[in-house]
């Protein structure tokens, strides 16, 4: 009668092999294409050389400080976005009047590409960390705000009636019924905003020249260091992947009760 907690264990080795076979095939193809001259060597070095360069970089402190600077921009940007988006989303999501009053402003500001704010950021904050954080925070704010809003508005009416009929107070209704129901939305918002914040952090480094991976990429281009250019691009990709995986793991823990995560414990 009790639903199974444990999912049937698949042969793990086989799943892993299937997952990585595609990756291996693409890497091999790129390697062969570069070695045979199918791709211009000048712009596209063999994959092995990119990774060799990446390996060399991991022994350099300048590389790690660039990674740190990018992550710093990401973390501050996402943190500031969350500090504003979640409370504001809660505030607007719990009142139809407030939501209606601010909807137009949100719908106007939201589609502005953050990159369009680069000159403004430079004007106000200069070319350092603040500009990067401002751009990342602005971009990350919107997905999180919208998700929080939806989460607050999508509370099950039966759950609300339950709270009312059992005379839960305002605070308890919010903390025990409304907020837990909104957490899946906020979690998704955080994951999206995390990606957006990383993109904007690197963009700011590229365009403005704030210290970080983006600036290093630009420097590699100027210096004609193609291997390094690719190695750094790979690192930005890996960063995005790792951060996403971290958030996914966090969701699995916090949302173990949610239909999308059940049985994944």
């Amino acid at each position: 009668m009790v639903a199974q907690r444990v999912r049937a264990a698949r042969p793990r080795a086989r799943t892993v092999a299937q997952t990585w076979s595609g990756v291996a095939a693409v890497l091999l193809l790129a390697e062969v294409a570069a070695r045979t001259g199918l791709l211009p060597r000048r712009y596209f070095p063999p994959v092995t050389e990119m990774f060799a360069e990446l390996g060399r970089q991991t022994t350099e402190t300048s590389f790690w400080s660039a990674v740190g600077q990018t992550l710093q921009g990401w973390a501050l940007g996402l943190g500031i976005a969350a500090a504003f988006a979640v409370p504001i989303g809660m505030l607007l999501g719990t009142s139809a009047v407030r939501y209606r009053a601010f909807r137009v402003i949100i719908e106007f500001l939201r589609p502005i590409p953050s990159v369009a704010l680069v000159p403004l950021a430079i004007l106000v904050y200069g070319v350092g960390l603040e500009s990067k954080v401002f751009l990342a925070a602005f971009a990350a704010f919107w997905p999180l705000l919208i998700q929080t809003l939806y989460g607050m508005q999508d509370v099950d009416p039966v759950a609300l009636d339950t709270a009312r009929v059992f005379r839960l107070g305002r605070v308890e209704r919010l903390t025990r019924v409304v907020l837990p129901g909104a957490v899946p939305y906020v979690a998704t918002g955080l994951r999206i905003s995390s990606s957006v914040a990383l993109i904007l952090a690197v963009t700011a480094e590229l365009v403005i020249g704030s210290p970080g991976l983006g600036r290093e990429i630009n420097a590699a281009r100027v210096g004609g260091a193609t291997d390094l250019l690719y190695a750094l691009i790979i690192v930005t990709g890996l960063l995005g992947w790792v951060l996403n995986a971290l958030f996914a793991a966090g969701e699995r823990r916090v949302l173990h009760w949610h239909p999308s995560q059940r049985g994944a414990r």
């Binding site: 039966v158 759950a159 009636d161 339950t162 837990p180 957490v183 009760w257 949610h258």
Partner: peptide, 9 residues
């Protein structure tokens, strides 16, 4: 609607 009246979390 018992499944909606009980809190899944």
């Amino acid at each position: 609607e018992y499944s909606r009246s009980l809190m899944p979390w």
